[in-house]
């Protein structure tokens, strides 16, 4: 590939962005170097899978993944708190990693698998119920970011220990300070997930006793349940 110092070149290769002085040069280059590649998508078009659905979208270069999912697609569960990669409220799972959608350019997520809080809730992940049960929220603005982070953790580590949960949540800021309520909720959800890997329909009217609240109590309860169930 040659470097072309002339910045006024007109002909840009749609495959590799190399520039050519004449159309014929570009044509020769494409036939030589990219003959067997599929026709590239128009500039700015990206394809991604969000919560299992395929999307084909136009994205300006400066559009962040957050802008795309929150503002354009209306997936408002991802929240913008710091807008600088410091708080975790806009967390989504991309290719299995919990990442910050405010610090990812949408165009760079082309071809990726993305999971948002909406997908997690739709799949009846037990985290939703355990968060509601254990009051792991106050104003709720940062809560989806915590849930998404926790989901990524449970995916990787189905039986996380207290300190592993705390480490995993160390990138999520909660101004209301609900932190101690999260490990309990996450532990319980992890246990539920192991019991019902495919998810379990949430009941609309919960009646279950919510008195076991300490991490140790939930852990013990979980162990007992698992022993009985497995």
């Amino acid at each position: 590939m040659t470097d072309n110092p002339n910045k006024n070149s007109k002909y840009l290769c749609p495959y590799c962005s190399t520039q050519y002085q004449t159309f014929d040069d570009l044509k020769t280059h494409i036939l030589k170097d990219h003959k067997n590649e599929p026709i590239p998508a128009p500039e700015g078009m990206i394809a991604m899978t969000i919560n299992g659905g395929s999307y084909s979208l136009r994205a300006e270069p400066e559009l962040t993944l957050y802008d795309l999912i929150h503002d354009r697609l209306g997936l408002i569960g991802s929240k913008q708190f710091c807008d600088r990669g410091a708080c975790g409220s806009c967390t989504v799972i991309m290719e299995g990693r919990a990442i910050l959608s405010c610090m990812a350019l949408a165009v760079e997520c082309d071809g990726k698998q993305i999971e948002t809080i909406e997908g997690i809730a739709e799949a009846e992940h037990p985290l939703i119920e355990s968060y509601a049960k254990h009051h792991a929220m106050q104003c709720g603005y940062c809560t989806p970011g915590f849930v998404v982070t926790a989901k990524a953790l449970i995916d990787k580590n189905p039986a996380p220990a207290d300190n592993e949960i705390r480490e995993a949540l160390a990138g999520n800021l909660c101004r209301c300070g609900t932190y101690p309520q999260h490990p309990v909720a996450i532990l319980e959800a992890a246990v539920e997930k192991r019991k019902f890997p495919e998810g379990k329909k949430r009941s609309l009217k919960p009646t279950e006793d919510a008195d076991k609240l300490s991490f140790e109590a939930v852990k013990q309860d979980a162990l007992d349940k698992l022993k009985g169930g497995e």
Partner: peptide, 25 residues
């Protein structure tokens, strides 16, 4: 005086369905 089974806004907030003024378009 009791712990209740679920906060009234628990599911809506955990599931990211709660709407805030910042979300309004």
């Amino acid at each position: 005086g009791k712990r209740i089974p679920r906060r009234i806004d628990g599911v809506v907030k955990a599931a990211g369905q709660a709407v805030y003024t910042m979300d309004v378009q």
